[in-house]
Computed example of a mutant assay.
Amino acid sequence: MASQPAVTLQDALEVVEALPETLQEDLIRILQHRHEERCRDVLAEHIQTARAEYNRGEVRRGTVDDLMKEISE
Rank of each mutant, 00 (worst) to 15 (best):
A2K: 05
A2H: 03
A2R: 04
A2Y: 01
S3Y: 12
P5S: 15
P5V: 07
A6F: 13
A6L: 13
A6E: 10
A6R: 12
V7M: 15
V7H: 09
T8H: 08
T8N: 04
T8W: 05
L9K: 10
L9G: 04
Q10L: 10
Q10H: 14
D11K: 01
D11P: 00
A12N: 09
E14R: 05
E14K: 02
E14W: 02
E14T: 01
V15S: 08
E17L: 08
A18R: 10
A18S: 14
A18M: 08
L19W: 14
P20N: 07
P20T: 05
E21Y: 07
T22S: 11
Q24R: 15
Q24A: 07
E25T: 05
E25G: 03
E25S: 05
D26P: 00
D26Q: 12
L27P: 00
L27A: 05
I28P: 00
I28H: 12
I28D: 04
R29T: 07
R29H: 15
I30N: 12
L31S: 10
L31H: 09
L31E: 10
Q32Y: 15
Q32M: 13
H33M: 15
H33F: 15
R34S: 05
H35I: 12
E36S: 08
E36A: 13
E37F: 12
R38V: 10
R38D: 14
R38G: 07
R38W: 13
R38H: 14
C39F: 11
R40A: 12
R40Q: 13
D41S: 08
D41M: 08
V42F: 10
V42E: 15
V42Q: 15
V42C: 08
L43N: 03
L43A: 10
L43S: 06
A44C: 06
E45L: 11
E45P: 00
H46I: 06
H46M: 11
H46C: 08
I47W: 06
I47R: 06
I47P: 00
T49Q: 09
A50E: 02
A52Y: 07
Y54R: 01
N55T: 08
G57L: 01
R60W: 15
R61S: 05
R61N: 02
R61C: 02
R61K: 04
G62W: 07
G62N: 07
T63N: 10
T63W: 03
T63K: 02
V64S: 12
V64W: 13
D65H: 15
L67P: 01
L67D: 12
L67E: 14
L67N: 07
M68I: 13
K69H: 03
K69C: 01
K69D: 09
K69S: 01
E70Y: 03
I71V: 10
I71M: 04
I71R: 07
S72C: 08
S72Q: 14
E73P: 00
E73S: 02
